[in-house]
Design a protein around this nucleic acid. Structure first.
Length: 820
RNA sequence: GCGGAAGUGGCGAAACUGGCAUACGCGCCAGGUUUAGGUCCUGGUGCCUUCGGGCGUGCGGGUUCGAGUCCCGCCUUCCGCACCA
C-alpha cells in the first residue's frame, strides 16, 4: 500500500485544523449575509475540568444539526459559552488554595481547546462566560428590574438547607430529599431569603406549553406540568372557637365537606403555634414540634410511616352544618401548600383515614362508593351519590361540587380556588462564587437597590477571604467591600452578602449570544428579533425542570417588559441520552470511567463522533461497552479510500453516469435528509454506509472508477459525512479536487426522477404467508397484478384445490390471496 | 402509591399512514490476499427441521385478508413525582 492510500486520521486532523481556523466557516456575524437565519444552541457546559464523554455525545449531536442546516444554505448561529459560576469552582479552590476565578478560567481554556480539536462548528466570535462582570452585570440589572416590578422579594420562611454545601436550595434543587448537587440529606432552616415570583407565571408556564407540543419531548412537558401541579378546588372558612378570624382551608373535594370529622394544621406552621399556646395541650405540642423538626426530609418523605399528631384541645366549626370538630396539629399537613390547614374527611382521603384510625377519630361516609372505609381501611375517592350531606344528598361529585360552591359563596364562607405545587424560586446562596445581589441594607431606609449606574457590583477578590462554608456568605466578611454608604440617605449601610443561584445566569444566556460583548445593554432587542427564539435547543434531560422552567419564566417576564416579542425561548428541544459504561454512569469510584482524550487519541476525533451519532437514537443512552469506535474508524477508512479512486474530472456532468448508482446516491441523500430532520441520525449514517458499499462495488465490479456517477456518489458521501466526521470529509473533498471547506459545499439537490424505481418487488401471499415475489412495474394496474399473481406457480401450488375466496390487491407491492 | 416510557437476533439497533420482520453496524464462522500483524477483500450468520416446510418482535386474548405497529388484560425494566389536601 502506498502512503497516499493510507487513512491516517492523525495527519488529517493536523492538516485541517489550521485551515479551518483561517477560514472560520461557521462565523454567523456578517451583517450582509443574505442566507436565512437559524439558531442552533447546545446547552453550555460547566467548566469542571476537561470535556468528558457526555460532552462528546451532546456536542456531536448538536453539531450534526448545526452543520446540516449550514449545508442546506442557512446562516446558522451556533454559539458556545461557559456556565462558569458555581460551587465546584469554590470547593476546588478551597482544596487547592487558589482562587475560584483562576481555576475556572483555566478549565475554560482547556475545554475551549478541546472543542476546537473536536471540530465543533461553534462561532468563536460569540463566546461568553457567566462569571465575567460584563455578563453578570446584567443578572443584577434583571434582578433590579424584577425587584421594581415586585417579582423579586425577600421573605422569612422554612427553607431547604444543604449542610454539606452550607447554603439554601430552591425546591427544584432538592431531589427525593437530597441535595441535587452532592446527595446530602437536606434539612429545613428558618431564614430570610430572596425569591423570584415564578408562581405568578404558573398559569402561563402551563398554558404556553401548547406552543411546545410536538416540538419538545412529551416527557419534558409532562414533567413540567406535574412540577407546576395546578389543582382546582375551593377555599372554605372554618371558625375556630376562641379565635376572632376564621381559618381558611384549601380542598379539592368541597363536596365532601359534610364528611369532615376533624381539622388539621401543619405542625410547623405559625398557626399551629398560635392555636396551641395557652391551651392545656401547649407542652405536648411543643414536644411534638421538636420531634417534627428533627425528622429529616428523607424520613418525612416516607409516606408509609405512621401518622403522628397532637390534639390542640380546640374546636373548629363546620360552616355548613355547625358541627364542632377537634383541631389537631400534624406533620402530614404541609405548612407551605394551600393554607397549611385542612379539613379532614377520613372516609374519602387515605391520609385522613390513616390519621383517624391512628387516633380513633370518627369516620363518616358522605359518598356512596363501594366498601365502608372504616371496615376496609381504604378511603373511597371514586364518584358516587352523596349521602349524609343535606342539600347535596343524591348528587354526584360534579353536581355536588357546583352546589356546595353556590352555598358557600352565598354565605360568604367559601369560594372556588386554584392551587399550585410550584413555589417561588429561592435564589439567594450563601457562597462566594456567584453574582452579588445588588441590594444595600440600610438601618434607616431598609432595602435599597444599587443604582443602575453603579452596576456591576463586582465580587471582591477571593484572596484574603475565607471561602470555607460556614452557613453565612463569605462576602459578609469582606468588610471593605460590604460597607457602603446608603444610596438614599448616605448613612452607613451594608451590601447584601448573598450571591444568586447560578440558574439565574443560565436563564437568559441564549439572548446574550446575539452580541455577548454589548456594554450598553443585556441584549439588543433588534438583534434578538433577528435570531430568537432558538430554533433548535440540544441538551440533557437532567434540566427538564430546573433550567428549562426558569428560562421559560425569564422569557415571559422579558416579554412583559416589552424586551422580547416571543413567550417561549426554545422552539424545538432535543434531549440526548447519557454515555454510560457497562450499564451504569461512569465514575472514578466505580472504576468504569472512560477518558475522552484516550478515545480520541486511539480512534481519532471522527471515529468517536461517528460512534456517538451511530450508536442509536439520540435520546437513548450510549453504552460505550456496546459500541465500536474501531468499527467506525474502519468505515471511515473505507469511505475515505473511495475519494482516491475517482478518476473523472471535477465538474463532470453526472447525468451521463451509471443510472443505478445515481439512483442509490439520490435515494441516500433523500433518506439521510429526512432522517437528520427527524433526529434519526443513526439511520442517516446507515444510509451513508449503504451508499459507500454500493459505490465500492460500482468501482470494483460495476461501472468502474471513471464513471461520472462515481464522482457524484463520492462527493455526496463526503458532504453527508461532513456532519459527523468533518476531518475525513474535508480530506476526501480535497482529494476530489475541491477547495475547502466541504462544510460549505452545500447539500446536493435530490433529483426526484432518480427516486422512482424502475421495478418494484411485489410480495404475493397466500393466507397472509409469503409464497412468491414478482418484479413488476411501479405503476402496474390492479387487474394486471391480480392476474399475474394468480398465475404464479408457487401460488397455484399453495392453493391446491381449495379455491380462491378473496384476493386483496395493493399495487404495486402486495397481493394477498385468501383460499376457501 | 400516582404518572409516564419502553420490551425486536449473541449485542447496538432498523421497519413511512397496519402490508417482504431483523436495514446498517458490532461480534462470530468460513474462504481469499498479504503475512509480523489486531490490515484488507469475499461469502455466511433468528430458531427448529424428517429439507416439504414449520415457528418467530415480553406473555395471554381480540380486531383484520393481513399486526412489531391498533384494542383489552397481564409480566418485566427504566424514568419522573412522592403525605400537594
Amino acid at each position: 500500500m502506498t502512503d497516499d492510500a493510507r487513512y491516517d486520521i492523525t495527519a488529517i486532523q493536523e492538516r485541517w485544523l489550521p485551515v479551518w481556523d483561517e477560514l472560520a466557516p461557521f462565523r454567523s456575524g456578517r451583517p450582509d449575509d443574505p442566507r436565512p437565519k437559524k439558531y442552533v444552541l447546545d446547552m453550555f457546559p460547566y467548566p469542571s475540568g476537561d470535556l468528558h464523554m457526555g460532552h462528546a455525545e451532546a456536542y456531536a449531536l448538536g453539531d450534526v444539526i448545526a452543520r446540516y442546516w449550514v449545508q442546506r444554505g442557512f446562516n446558522v448561529m451556533h454559539p458556545i459559552g461557559w456556565d462558569a459560576f458555581g460551587l465546584p469552582a469554590e470547593n476546588a479552590a478551597i482544596k487547592r488554595g487558589e482562587s475560584p476565578a483562576l481555576w475556572t478560567y483555566d478549565n475554560i481554556a482547556q475545554q475551549k481547546s478541546s472543542m476546537r480539536r473536536y471540530a465543533c462548528s461553534f462561532d468563536w466570535d460569540r463566546v461568553l462566560n457567566t462569571c465575567d462582570p460584563e455578563y453578570y452585570k446584567w443578572n443584577q440589572w434583571f434582578f433590579l428590574q424584577m425587584y421594581e416590578r415586585g417579582l423579586a422579594y425577600r421573605k422569612d420562611s422554612n427553607v431547604n438547607w444543604c449542610p454539606e454545601c452550607q447554603t439554601v436550595l430552591a425546591n427544584e434543587q432538592v431531589v427525593a430529599g437530597l441535595c441535587e448537587r452532592c446527595d446530602t440529606q437536606v434539612t429545613k432552616k428558618k431564614l430570610t431569603q430572596w425569591y423570584l415570583r415564578i408562581t405568578d407565571y404558573a398559569d402561563r408556564l402551563l398554558d404556553d406549553m401548547a406552543q411546545l407540543e410536538g416540538q419538545w419531548p412529551e416527557k419534558v412537558l409532562l414533567m413540567q406540568r406535574n412540577w407546576i401541579g395546578r389543582s382546582t378546588g375551593a377555599e372554605v372558612e372554618f371558625v375556630i372557637e376562641g379565635r376572632d378570624a376564621p381559618v381558611t382551608v384549601y380542598t379539592t373535594r368541597p363536596d365532601t365537606l359534610y364528611g369532615a370529622t376533624f381539622f388539621v394544621v401543619a405542625a410547623d406552621s405559625d398557626l399551629a403555634m398560635e392555636l396551641a399556646m395557652g391551651t392545656p395541650a401547649e407542652a405536648e405540642f411543643l414536644a411534638y414540634l421538636d420531634t417534627v423538626k428533627q425528622t429529616s426530609e428523607m424520613d418525612r418523605l416516607d409516606n408509609s410511616r405512621d401518622k403522628t399528631g397532637v390534639f390542640l384541645q380546640r374546636y373548629a366549626i363546620n360552616p355548613v352544618n355547625g358541627e364542632r370538630i377537634p383541631v389537631w396539629a400534624s406533620d402530614y399537613v404541609l405548612a407551605d401548600y394551600g393554607t397549611g390547614a385542612i379539613m379532614a374527611v377520613p372516609a374519602h382521603d387515605q391520609r385522613d383515614l390513616d390519621f383517624a384510625r391512628t387516633f380513633d377519630l370518627p369516620v363518616r361516609v358522605v359518598v356512596e362508593a363501594g366498601e365502608d372505609p372504616l371496615v376496609s381501611g381504604i378511603a373511597t375517592a371514586d364518584d358516587g351519590p352523596h349521602v349524609n350531606s343535606g342539600p347535596l344528598d343524591g348528587l354526584d361529585k360534579a353536581a355536588a361540587i357546583a352546589r356546595i360552591l353556590e352555598v358557600l359563596q352565598e354565605r360568604g364562607t367559601g369560594r372556588p380556588s386554584v392551587n399550585y405545587r410550584l413555589r417561588d424560586w429561592l435564589i439567594s446562596r450563601q457562597r462566594y462564587w456567584g453574582t452579588p445581589i445588588p441590594i444595600i441594607h440600610c438601618p434607616a431606609c431598609g432595602e435599597v437597590p444599587v443604582p443602575l449606574d453603579q452596576l456591576p457590583v463586582e465580587l471582591p477578590p477571593a484572596e484574603g477571604l475565607d471561602l470555607k462554608p460556614k452557613g453565612a456568605s463569605p462576602l459578609g466578611a469582606a468588610v471593605a467591600w460590604a460597607s457602603v454608604p446608603c444610596p438614599t440617605c448616605g448613612g452607613p449601610a451594608t451590601r447584601d452578602p448573598d450571591t444568586m443561584d447560578t440558574f439565574v445566569d443560565s436563564s437568559w444566556y441564549y439572548l446574550r449570544y446575539v452580541d455577548p460583548h454589548d456594554a450598553t445593554t443585556a441584549f439588543d432587542p433588534a438583534k434578538v428579533r433577528e435570531w430568537l427564539p432558538v430554533d433548535q435547543y440540544v441538551g440533557g434531560v437532567t434540566h427538564a425542570i430546573l433550567h428549562l422552567l426558569y428560562s421559560r419564566f425569564f422569557t415571559k417576564v422579558l416579554y412583559d417588559m416589552g424586551l422580547v416579542d416571543f413567550t417561549e425561548p426554545f422552539t424545538r428541544l432535543l434531549n440526548q441520552g447519557m454515555v454510560v459504561m457497562n450499564g451504569s454512569a461512569m465514575s472514578k469510584s466505580r472504576g468504569n470511567l472512560v477518558r475522552l482524550s484516550d478515545e480520541l487519541s486511539e480512534h481519532g476525533v471522527d471515529a468517536v463522533r461517528l460512534t456517538m451519532v451511530f450508536a442509536g437514537p439520540p435520546e437513548d443512552d450510549v453504552d460505550w461497552a456496546d459500541v465500536s469506535p474501531a468499527g467506525s474508524h474502519k468505515f471511515l477508512a473505507r469511505a475515505w479510500r473511495l475519494s482516491g479512486d475517482v478518476t473523472s474530472p471535477v465538474g463532470v456532468d453526472p447525468r451521463t453516469g451509471d443510472h443505478a448508482l445515481r439512483q442509490a446516491t439520490h435515494r441516500a441523500l433523500h433518506d439521510a435528509s429526512l432522517a437528520v430532520e427527524t433526529f434519526r441520525f443513526n439511520v442517516a449514517v446507515a444510509r451513508i454506509m449503504e451508499l459507500v458499499n454500493v459505490t465500492r462495488k460500482a468501482i470494483d465490479s460495476g461501472c468502474g472508477p471513471a464513471d461520472p456517477a462515481v464522482r457524484e456518489a463520492v462527493e455526496a458521501i463526503a458532504i453527508m459525512l461532513s456532519l459527523s466526521a468533518p476531518y475525513t470529509a474535508e480530506d476526501m473533498w480535497s482529494r476530489l479536487g475541491h477547495q475547502p471547506s466541504v462544510a460549505l459545499a452545500g447539500w446536493p439537490e435530490v433529483d426526484p426522477a432518480l427516486l422512482v424505481q424502475d421495478t418494484v418487488t411485489c410480495v404475493v401471499q397466500v393466507a397472509g404467508k409469503v409464497k412468491d415475489r414478482l418484479d413488476v412495474s411501479p405503476d402496474i394496474s390492479e387487474d394486471a397484478l391480480r392476474e399475474l399473481a394468480l398465475a404464479s406457480d408457487a401460488v397455484v401450488r399453495a392453493i391446491g384445490d381449495a379455491g380462491v375466496k378473496v384476493v386483496i390487491v395493493r399495487p404495486p407491492k402486495l397481493v394477498n390471496i385468501v383460499p376457501n
